[in-house]
Design a protein around this nucleic acid. Structure first.
Lengths: 259, 259
DNA sequence: CGTTCCCTTGACACCGATCAACTCTGGTGG
DNA sequence: CCACCAGAGTTGATCGGTGTCAAGGGAACG
């Protein structure tokens, strides 16, 4: 079922059926092959699918939600707001990512999650989410694996923001997104959708949008990337990786078939 | 059993018995009360206890270890090294923390862990670690909960390094350590052991040791903290928290009895 | 009693923030 | 159809926080 969320106002529903759900299953199953029964269990998790319009919240800080959320299509941002109002994005959530597995255990959200563009999200009741994996060790392992890779990405972000200058940070972000999107089949010829503003990039990398703008200009003039209206093309992956010292092994792609 | 690791050279073995182990169990059990059987299972995990001397590695990047490690006493640092040789500490591991639960699933370490002072560590065979929780849902929950709080701490670090100036960053770090150590009973009168160098703090906060030195001087002259030879005393917790906007809820202390 | 590690302090350079202005685009309403 | 407006991108000038380089001091240790 595809429902509009939270209010029906931005045009007709997109009736995508279970397409996004299959991506989620493929992503989880790629590392630890799942049985048909297990896949079915995952598919039923995704039965409540809703479309969240751009810039709308999926969850807010302080919420005590009764669902966990899985991104099926589009991008979302996990962020924290400081006392002075500045925002730090701590993760980009891509199709197949689980937003908030932790609320089943920690309950209160210590951060918010907002849709970047329009996002298709599966809403899974928390109790369902607790039962399924416990009875299916393979699913548990797969979910745990996804959590651990999220952690590895966070560690890479800390090192990125803490120890690299602006151009390296942004190059590293682009390399990460390139690698993660490639694993779920969303890159063609080094080109992929990048539905974020320069301010989003700034808030993710600990910079200002003004400086992001200047850095992008340098990356463009050095023929490393091409940025065109919501699309990013990496013209020279090797050079970009060299620039920032990107090493994809932390994403553990070797265990993932390309889906 | 207490063994020296990796070479017997730094004085007599400390025969601490199971003291550190009890802290680990208390920490895990505080949130989801464990049965005696479950506690016993955890205690047997800690049967192989070794002492790692200061500055020695517990694991290195690239390792494919057959043990997971639990800090029982002392501090360790989780860190990544950049191409240019600079180091970023991405977490401080305190007594009761599990270093590398993920190696049971992801296998290859994407970062290193080094002892800061002398550290007492439990070595748990990976296969043991896989079996115990699967048969004991409560233990699984407790371990998962610990993992999720580690994640919350990492998110706080990203926001800290990305969006705060040096003095706020360091204040926030001190507030975090104060709160985490208080939960395991290692704070008395706002005072606790801080067995790190200024360079460690710099590598953790994305700064240089020179600048950390200057910032500490300011914190000292403002009577916010007192730093004396491996000890930190927070003179005005409220003021320090106000300075950096520290909010302890992300550590979910409400679920933890003070042990 | 030299060596090493850590802390401390000063002078200066530079990366990125801040402030401000302008363009371009798409949307909205008169 | 056009005027207006909001959001995003672009660019310049200037300021400030932090890095870099350098030198020296104290304590622990062999």
């Amino acid at each position: 079922m595809v429902r509009e969320y939270p209010e029906p106002k931005s045009g007709p529903l997109r009736s995508v059926g279970g397409a996004g759900c299959e991506r989620f299953i493929a992503k989880l199953g790629a590392a630890s092959s799942l049985s048909d029964d297990e896949k079915l269990a995952l598919r039923t998790l995704c039965s409540d699918t809703r479309v969240v319009p751009a810039k709308r919240h999926i969850i807010r800080e302080g919420d005590n939600p009764e669902h966990i959320h899985i991104i099926l299509n589009g991008w979302a941002a996990r962020y924290k707001i400081q006392k002075d109002g500045s925002r730090q994005i701590v993760a980009f959530l891509l199709p197949g990512d689980v937003c908030d597995l932790h609320v089943t255990i920690l309950r209160r959200m210590d951060h918010g999650i907002v849709a970047i563009g329009q996002v298709e999200v599966a809403f899974v009741p928390a109790e369902t989410m607790e039962d399924v994996p416990l009875e299916r060790p393979n699913v548990l392992r797969a979910l745990w694996r996804a959590t651990l890779i999220d952690e590895a990405v966070m560690r890479a972000w800390i090192a990125n923001i803490g120890r690299r200058v602006a151009i390296e940070r942004i190059a590293h972000l682009f390399c990460e997104l390139h690698a993660r999107l490639a694993l779920i089949g969303l890159v063609t010829d080094g080109q992929f959708a990048l539905p974020v503003t320069q301010e989003d990039i700034a808030d993710a990398m600990g910079l200002t949008s003004v400086h992001v703008n200047r850095v992008l200009k340098v990356l463009r003039t050095q023929d490393l990337v091409r940025v065109t209206d919501g699309e990013l093309e990496i013209l020279d992956v090797a050079a970009l990786r060299e620039l920032c010292g990107f090493d994809a092994t932390y994403l553990h792609p070797e265990q993932l078939a390309r889906v």
